[in-house]
Nucleic acid binder design. Structure first.
Length: 647
DNA sequence: CAGTGAGCGAGCTTCCGCTTGACTT
């Protein structure tokens, strides 16, 4: 019996089905060797020699591969066709250790692709493995050298990294833009005009930015003569969106369902494990040819020829850092619009997400939608006003994948050039420019992807990390930096600017490509980075002052020392969340609980307020503000009655 | 489930990326 080794156990099961009994298939469950967690694991004096060790927690997977390999005939290592996959392949080869292994790759899980791969085995691509080593060593050096500086200069337990610090920096800088933003006044001036039917035109050739000008314009418009000056009709075509990647799926589920990246990814995982969708951690929009063919059949049968474009649509990945190891996220059976899913706690989510993925995918192979767009220009003295109308002529792919928040049809009446219109009303509207929006999960993931920072497997974890570290807080879905986040980002950007430049990762990727192509040695790339970095580390460690973290003031005197020493109450963040203390600490040691009220009285004593409390870093519980007089406490939110709390 | 901050300094914290499973943040 031959043996095939892949990363995902679900993939292993699927392959077994294709290949029958002459092949055994085993999974590594991701990486099996890595740098040790408890120490640097990189010998900076010996050309950065990395100390890759079997990973804690992967003993079973490793053992499994060892035993199965001993009995196997041919051994095909079919880990993912990308940098990390090649590294895993190399580690598998080291563990099997008998020289019998061959490396194969495929980009889609179809019988043809796998058979083709088996027919063309190769060896390990050591240049690509080297690129992974460089990536891994760089991240380790950045993370494990900078974090201890934060412990020393800011606060214990903090962390820094090529990815997480950039995420925090984005949020901090956005907050600054919002703070310094000054709203600008501007006016939009509309006129309702009519011939047989009334329609609305907007002033377009004069900028109005205050009431005085607006009044003058309105005054003139009231007296003006309105003549249709120009009519433009055009056909506007809209092509469907590409199928989902991890990033676009997370963004869309966030926008449409309000889901967190975590919720979307864990729902997708369940769909993947049930064989309903292709792999959900991907940066590619490629689609298996066989899936396209099936989808075209389905579209033809279900919607008719009009909805089927002449040729299949194939999409190109635009993201420059994409590795394209997998297909796009799509239903494995494009003709199944609603899969049968057993009723469980999660089935509603699964059905919802499946339906979204299915619609997006089938729509991506459907005909272009067509709008008739009409623009009517109206002259009123020196003023030019315009109305734009749009009518859906043929829905095409929009029949299936309707995008919320898109304007409805605006139908304009038939008028001719030169016709005089009657003014019904002038409607001046005062507006103000809006500050940039705070980041939410969707926009943060989008921006990180554009910068090439983070990978499909890490978008959701990044969002958790920056919150766990208390660098940012999420409220009503939007991220705000904490004082710690601001202090850490400022400290790191000031002292290690080059590492946290927004294009640092993109430049790193360029270097890694050179390593993968065999044009550069990985040690040279790391050496080039580390020399100046090490110098900087030493000088910052020696010279940088300890960072003071801004505290939130309560504007109340300290009950213990407020009278004689003018201590004031401030909010500090400790190991167990926020608490109130005296600004004069350590001279005054007054502390009190920080109460985060949820707006309801204690269900037990009816006198205190229910407040949110924390135990350890994570666990929240609800308690009474009168503790210890009232000992009421609950894990469950007392505002929620019976209803399931979907996270 | 009732702690916390500074500094003293035992021993400890920390990265990104690949997987899933255990568990609810």
């Amino acid at each position: 019996m031959n043996l095939i080794i892949v990363e995902s156990p679900t993939k292993a099961k699927t392959l077994s089905r294709f290949l029958g009994s002459s092949y055994g298939v085993e999974a590594t469950m991701g990486h099996i060797k890595d740098l040790p967690k408890s120490k640097l694991g990189v010998d900076v004096d010996k050309n950065f020699a990395p100390d890759y060790q079997p990973m804690v927690g992967k003993e079973e997977a490793i053992k499994n591969i060892e035993t199965k390999s001993k009995k196997a005939g041919k051994i095909y290592i079919a880990t993912d066709p990308d940098r990390e996959g090649e590294a895993i392949a190399n580690h598998v080869k080291e563990i099997v250790g008998n020289g019998k292994t061959k490396r194969i790759v495929f980009h889609e899980i179809t019988k043809e692709a796998v058979e083709e791969a088996i027919a063309h085995p190769r060896g390990i691509d050591h240049h690509l493995v080297d690129a992974q080593i460089a990536r891994r060593v760089l991240d380790r050096l950045v993370g494990y050298k900078l974090s201890p500086i934060l412990w020393k200069k800011v606060r214990r337990g903090l962390s820094a990294g090529r990815v997480q610090t950039v995420a925090v920096r984005l949020i901090v800088e956005r907050e600054r833009e919002i703070e310094k933003f000054k709203a600008q006044e501007y006016w939009e001036i509309y006129c309702d005009v009519k011939k047989d039917q009334q329609f609305r035109v907007q002033l377009i050739n004069k900028k109005v930015d205050n009431k005085k000008t607006a009044d003058k314009v309105v005054h003139n418009l009231k007296k003006a003569k309105y003549v249709v000056a120009n009519i433009k009709r055009s056909e506007v075509k809209k092509n469907p969106y590409p199928p989902f990647t991890t990033s676009t799926m997370s963004q869309t589920a966030s926008r449409l369902f309000g889901w967190s990246a975590r919720r979307t990814m864990s729902t997708a995982q369940k769909l993947y494990e049930r064989g309903l969708i292709t792999y959900h951690r991907t940066d590619s929009v490629n689609i298996a040819v066989s899936a396209v063919a099936k989808t075209r059949e389905y579209i033809k049968a279900q919607f008719g020829d009009r909805y089927l474009p002449d040729a299949p649509r194939f999409y190109k990945t635009t993201s420059k850092s994409a590795q394209e190891a997998h297909e796009a996220i799509r239903p494995t059976k494009p003709d199944v619009s609603q899969p049968k899913i057993k009723k469980t706690k999660w089935s509603a989510d699964m059905v919802k997400l499946y339906s979204l993925i299915w619609k997006r995918f089938v729509a991506c192979q459907m005909a272009t939608s067509i709008f008739d767009r009409t623009t009517i220009d109206v002259k009123a003295g020196d003023y030019l006003l315009r109305a734009s109308g749009q009518i859906l002529k043929f829905d095409g792919w929009k029949k299936l994948y309707a995008v919320k928040m898109e304007a409805d049809d605006v139908i304009l009446p038939e008028v001719a050039v030169g016709v005089t219109l009657q003014l019904v009303k002038v409607d001046p509207q005062q507006k103000f420019t809006q500050p940039p929006a705070k980041f939410n999960e969707a926009s943060l993931i989008k921006t990180l992807e554009e910068l090439g920072v983070g990978r499909p497997s890490t978008y959701a974890p990044i969002i958790s990390t920056i919150q766990t570290r208390q660098y940012v807080e999420k409220s009503e879905g939007k991220f705000t930096p904490t004082n710690i986040g601001i202090a850490v980002a400022d400290f790191l950007v000031k002292n290690f600017e080059s590492v946290f430049e927004y294009d640092f990762t993109a430049e790193m990727e360029n270097d890694l490509d050179r390593v993968a192509d065999g044009d550069k040695k990985w040690q040279g790339v790391i050496g080039g980075f580390y020399k100046p970095f090490e110098k900087k580390l030493k000088s910052v460690e020696k010279n940088a002052k300890r960072v003071k973290i801004e505290t939130e003031k309560l504007n109340k005197p300290c009950p213990k020392c407020g009278k004689e020493s003018k201590g004031e109450l401030v909010v500090r963040v400790g190991r167990f969340g926020k608490f109130v203390s005296c600004s004069r600490f350590p001279d005054c040691d007054y502390t009190d609980r920080y109460e985060e009220r949820i707006g309801m009285r204690c269900p037990d004593c009816k006198k205190g307020h229910v407040i949110i409390k924390k135990t350890g870093k994570w666990k929240k519980f609800f308690g009474c503000s009168r503790y210890p007089d009232c000992k009421w406490a609950s894990w469950k939110d007392p505002r929620v009655k019976k209803e399931k709390t979907a996270s």
